[in-house]
Amino acid sequence: TEHYTFHTEEQAQRAAKKFKKQGLPVTIHEKNGKFTLQVN
């Protein structure tokens, strides 16, 4: 499991699309105004 932190939801969504294209499951969590992208 890898985690990436982004300052905006837009950045997180863009990164999520790249991972999803590779067939990886992705979840985004919002915490304290930051967005954490979790790749399993």
Results as ranks from 00 to 15, higher is better:
28 I>G: 00
32 N>P: 00
33 G>C: 06
40 N>K: 09
24 L>G: 02
16 A>R: 03
39 V>L: 09
32 N>H: 05
29 H>P: 00
39 V>N: 01
23 G>L: 03
17 K>F: 06
5 T>M: 08
31 K>R: 10
16 A>N: 01
20 K>D: 06
36 T>D: 07
2 E>K: 13
15 A>D: 01
12 A>Q: 00
39 V>P: 03
9 E>M: 15
14 R>T: 08
29 H>A: 10
7 H>K: 09
14 R>L: 08
31 K>S: 11
22 Q>N: 07
7 H>I: 08
3 H>A: 09
32 N>K: 04
10 E>K: 10
3 H>N: 10
10 E>W: 09
37 L>H: 02
12 A>M: 04
2 E>W: 13
38 Q>A: 09
23 G>V: 00
17 K>E: 15
29 H>E: 12
5 T>F: 12
16 A>K: 03
19 F>M: 07
13 Q>E: 09
2 E>P: 10
23 G>F: 03
15 A>W: 08
20 K>E: 14
27 T>K: 07
32 N>Q: 04
31 K>G: 06
29 H>T: 14
6 F>K: 00
24 L>F: 12
16 A>I: 05
18 K>T: 06
6 F>C: 06
26 V>T: 06
36 T>S: 06
13 Q>M: 12
27 T>G: 03
25 P>F: 15
18 K>P: 04
25 P>L: 15
9 E>A: 10
3 H>Q: 11
12 A>S: 01
14 R>M: 09
1 T>Q: 10
5 T>W: 14
2 E>C: 15
2 E>N: 10
30 E>D: 05
24 L>A: 04
12 A>G: 00
10 E>P: 04
34 K>T: 08
10 E>L: 09
21 K>H: 08
22 Q>K: 10
39 V>T: 05
32 N>S: 04
1 T>Y: 14
3 H>Y: 15
28 I>W: 03
9 E>Y: 15
2 E>S: 11
3 H>D: 08
21 K>S: 13
33 G>P: 02
6 F>D: 00
9 E>I: 15
15 A>N: 02
2 E>R: 14
33 G>A: 01
39 V>Q: 02
29 H>N: 08
25 P>Q: 15
25 P>G: 13
37 L>D: 02
27 T>W: 07
33 G>W: 00
9 E>G: 04
11 Q>S: 08
9 E>V: 12
37 L>K: 02
18 K>M: 12
37 L>N: 02
36 T>R: 06
32 N>E: 08
20 K>N: 06
22 Q>L: 14
10 E>S: 07
39 V>K: 00
29 H>L: 13
38 Q>E: 14
7 H>F: 12
31 K>P: 00
21 K>A: 14
38 Q>C: 15
35 F>R: 03
23 G>Q: 03
22 Q>E: 09
10 E>T: 06
8 T>V: 03
20 K>G: 07
36 T>G: 06
15 A>I: 06
1 T>D: 10
3 H>E: 13
8 T>G: 03
7 H>Q: 13
14 R>F: 05
34 K>L: 10
31 K>N: 12
26 V>N: 01
2 E>H: 15
11 Q>M: 08
28 I>F: 03
1 T>A: 10
21 K>L: 11
14 R>S: 08
30 E>P: 05
36 T>E: 14
7 H>E: 14
36 T>L: 13
26 V>L: 03
22 Q>D: 07
26 V>A: 05
16 A>H: 02
10 E>A: 11
7 H>L: 13
20 K>F: 09
5 T>Q: 08
38 Q>V: 15
34 K>Y: 13
32 N>G: 07
34 K>I: 14
14 R>G: 04
40 N>M: 13
38 Q>H: 14
35 F>E: 02
33 G>E: 02
32 N>Y: 05
27 T>H: 07
31 K>I: 14
15 A>E: 06
17 K>R: 11
32 N>T: 01
27 T>V: 09
23 G>A: 03
21 K>Q: 13
19 F>V: 04
11 Q>F: 04
18 K>R: 12
35 F>Q: 02
22 Q>I: 11
13 Q>R: 12
16 A>Q: 04
19 F>P: 01
19 F>T: 01
18 K>D: 08
